[in-house]
Design a protein around this nucleic acid. Sequence first.
DNA 1: GTGAGGATGCAAATCATTCTCAAGTGTCAG
DNA 2: CTGACACTTGAGAATGATTTGCATCCTCAC
Lengths: 140, 140
Amino acid sequence: MTSHIEQLCIEKGLKMTDQRRVVARVLSEANDHPDVEQVHIRAMRIDPNISIATVYRSLRLLEEASIIERLDFGDGRSRYEEACERHHHHLIDIQTGEVIEFINDEIEELKRKIAHDLNYRLIGHRLELYGIKRRTDKDE
Amino acid sequence: MTSHIEQLCIEKGLKMTDQRRVVARVLSEANDHPDVEQVHIRAMRIDPNISIATVYRSLRLLEEASIIERLDFGDGRSRYEEACERHHHHLIDIQTGEVIEFINDEIEELKRKIAHDLNYRLIGHRLELYGIKRRTDKDE
DNA sequence: GTGAGGATGCAAATCATTCTCAAGTGTCAG
DNA sequence: CTGACACTTGAGAATGATTTGCATCCTCAC
Ligand SMILES: [Mn+2]
Ligand SMILES: [Mn+2]
Ligand SMILES: [Zn+2]
Ligand SMILES: [Zn+2]
């Protein structure tokens, strides 16, 4: 009954309301990267009265608690996903909008090294790739 | 008298107006990554009547002609820089807002390889690092 | 069970950016 | 020179995502 994200909220001592439970559940059940409007639509299927303002507020709360992550694919809308899994980045298919996740330790190490060489400690980073599907026969 | 960017505009056959010349000059003379408001302020020092709408329009024109590049440091405002130099990325000092440019061929190659392995052709990518200055004695 | 502090819904406000439109400018034919 | 056509500009209105003010409602530690 309690979603994974709701569980994390409880552990962090966040006050839980019906609306927050709904948003938590929507994001727990999502396996894509919904924007705020999509979260709102899915939330309204559970509670038709939930307002978009509350969705915004709940998402911000969850993000500030590091329970979810905000993503920015450059289209002017914030997208969200559960933060618990392994750190990864996204390849966005610019033709279909499809999002492919990838993990690459080499690139993570390289980024840390670049920052270090510039005499900085790396706090955060953004990386997205944008591409189009490749015909398997031809390369590059 | 004609700025470097104005020269590029002429070569591309863009119709030049006084206002476009001013925006071109502001960006040619900039050695930072100004946002639209900053470009407008600098432009008004040359032509006090230039409107923000024209600055937006000129920046879009220059960007579409690949003469300048739009940057997004995650603060909700577009920033711009001349595009002619070598492809590079940015490390943003989250305490001071200072921007450090860096070039890293290894990371570029790695990104292409990641996309290729996912069966995609890489069209574009975003990469920014966010960090804080490191005391030179202690590491990591 | 109660109360104080926090949360909600709604509408209005922000903020960056784009658009509308009337007026201005440049280029060229006649 | 004159008019026509195409394009540009400034001002302000419009847009779209997000935040906020406010009156009301709910949660949770006591
Ligand atoms: Mn993801
Ligand atoms: Mn730069
Ligand atoms: Zn990473
Ligand atoms: Zn690059």
